[in-house]
Amino acid sequence: MPDFGSIKFGTLFAGTEIPVLTTSVTVAAGQGVLKAGAVLGKVTADGTYKLVDKAATDGSQVASVVLAEEVDTTGGAVPAVAYTSGLFTYDALYVAVGDTVADHQDELRSGNIYYKTDY
């Protein structure tokens, strides 16, 4: 079993009203370093996850999880821990350039991932 590192609660979370659940995912190669808080979508063809981008057409345009730890995908696909539910700080989440987290609000909510913009 790979070592998925440790999960740190901090400014990523905006409250405890929504239970925090995690899962293991494989983050697709070629995205460089992704930090905790990256909103990811699942690539339909191979089941890996990429930084969500509304312009994508491979399935990763639909937000589904939030990355729980920093990963470096430069050398290839990597295993990681991702949140499948929780209440997050809006400013700690990020998506692809030209996209916004708010663009994916309905998708995230359908998966029980919520965010707060007022702290």
Rank of each mutant, 00 (worst) to 15 (best):
A63Q: 05
L67E: 11
G98R: 08
D99M: 01
F88H: 02
T74E: 11
L67W: 10
V78T: 05
D72V: 10
G86L: 07
L67K: 02
V65A: 02
A77D: 13
E70W: 05
G98F: 11
E107T: 07
L93P: 07
Y90S: 04
G59Y: 02
T74A: 12
L93V: 10
G75C: 07
Y94L: 10
V66E: 06
E69C: 11
V65R: 00
T74Q: 10
Q61Y: 07
D99F: 05
G76T: 12
S85V: 07
V65W: 03
A96P: 02
A92N: 12
G86I: 01
E69P: 00
T89W: 03
G59V: 02
A63C: 08
A82L: 03
T73W: 03
A102E: 14
D103I: 02
G76P: 08
D91T: 14
Y83H: 12
D103S: 12
V97G: 13
Y83I: 02
E107A: 15
E107D: 15
V65S: 00
V97P: 07
S64Y: 03
G59Q: 01
A92L: 09
P79K: 14
F88V: 04
T100Q: 06
T89E: 12
V95D: 07
V71R: 05
L67H: 04
L93T: 07
L108T: 03
L67I: 12
G59A: 09
F88P: 01
P79N: 15
E107H: 11
E70S: 15
P79M: 13
D99K: 04
S60H: 06
V62G: 01
V62C: 05
G75I: 10
D99W: 05
T84K: 09
A68N: 09
D106S: 14
D72P: 06
P79R: 13
E70T: 15
T89K: 11
A92Y: 13
D106G: 09
P79D: 15
G75N: 15
G98C: 06
T84P: 07
L67V: 13
Y83F: 15
A77N: 13
T100M: 08
F88R: 03
S85M: 04
V65N: 01
T74R: 03
D91C: 01
A63H: 02
D106P: 00
T89G: 05
D72N: 15
F88G: 00
G98M: 04
V101G: 00
V66T: 06
A80C: 11
Q105S: 14
D99S: 03
L93S: 09
D72Q: 09
D106R: 08
A77K: 03
E107C: 10
T74W: 09
D58P: 09
Q61L: 10
D103P: 01
Q61S: 13
Y94P: 04
